[in-house]
């Protein structure tokens, strides 16, 4: 237990900060994923074949390729790509992007592919009559999307989004390969310096279990809130 003490003698405070980092990366990645889903869900549902192709290839490629490979692409290719874009604007210095941004971006793109599928499924399972009714009532597109479609879609999407959240949370452990100090990386450092890998990795497993358990509790509450009246 001394190993987990706070302060200079133990790893308690380091692991605590690392846990916060894992939560921060997961939330950022989930948010970036939503942004991607916001772009790609309409593309997937569009009647235009070209848009359709773009939307479908995004979800197929990301869901068919290992997460680790996507992370390596961003880790090794990220700063190169940014430097290339910057050089177009006449900036030629070396740019290093920090691990938090590359990591949450890589995980965000992965989580976005899953979110897109969830939103697509949710929108498609809304009764067609709802679309027609809002057209008949002459609702503006904006009102009809936010007042009619969104509330119904969220109710259907939340159970599946909780799965996406779990996947995203667990995927953040992979960012440790890029050196971002989250739970996995911190356990690796602690295990290396104390020569007690069994304890620290088991403790990391407990931390992840705690995170998934607590977030499930929270999401269940949301689920109840949004399924009121059904």
């Amino acid at each position: 237990m001394e190993l987990l003490a706070f302060g200079k003698t133990g790893w308690g405070d380091e692991l605590f900060i690392a846990t916060l980092m894992t939560i921060a990366v997961s939330i950022t990645a989930m948010f970036i994923g939503f942004l991607f889903a916001l772009i790609f869900t309409p593309l997937k549902l569009s009647k235009n074949k070209f848009f359709n192709l773009i939307g479908n290839s995004y979800t197929t490629v990301i869901r068919g390729v290992p997460e680790l490979l996507v992370i390596y692409l961003f880790f090794f290719g990220g700063s190169g790509a940014v430097m290339y874009v910057a050089s177009i604007f006449g900036y030629n210095e070396y740019i290093e992007i920090n691990a938090f941004i590359t990591g949450s971006f890589a995980i965000g793109i992965i989580s976005g592919a899953y979110s897109t599928e969830v939103f697509r499924g949710a929108i498609q399972s809304i009764d067609k009559g709802q679309f027609e009714a809002s057209q008949v009532l002459g609702l503006k597109r904006f009102v009809y999307f936010f007042r009619v479609i969104m509330p119904q879609m969220l109710r259907l999407a939340i159970p599946n989004l909780s799965n996406v959240w779990q996947i995203t949370l667990k995927d953040t452990s992979l960012i440790s390969v890029t050196g971002l100090v989250e739970i996995m990386r911190q356990s690796y450092i602690a295990a290396g310096s104390t020569r007690d890998p069994l304890f620290f990795y088991s403790f990391a497993a407990v931390l992840y279990l705690l995170l998934t358990f607590l977030s499930m509790k929270l999401i269940n509450r949301l689920e109840i809130k949004y399924s009121r009246g059904f």
């Binding site: 667990k170 995927d171 996995m184 890998p197 990795y201 992840y208 998934t212």
Partner: peptide, 9 residues
């Protein structure tokens, strides 16, 4: 509930 990476390690 835990990442595969933790299990391997």
């Amino acid at each position: 509930g835990t990442p595969l990476l933790v299990q391997i390690f």
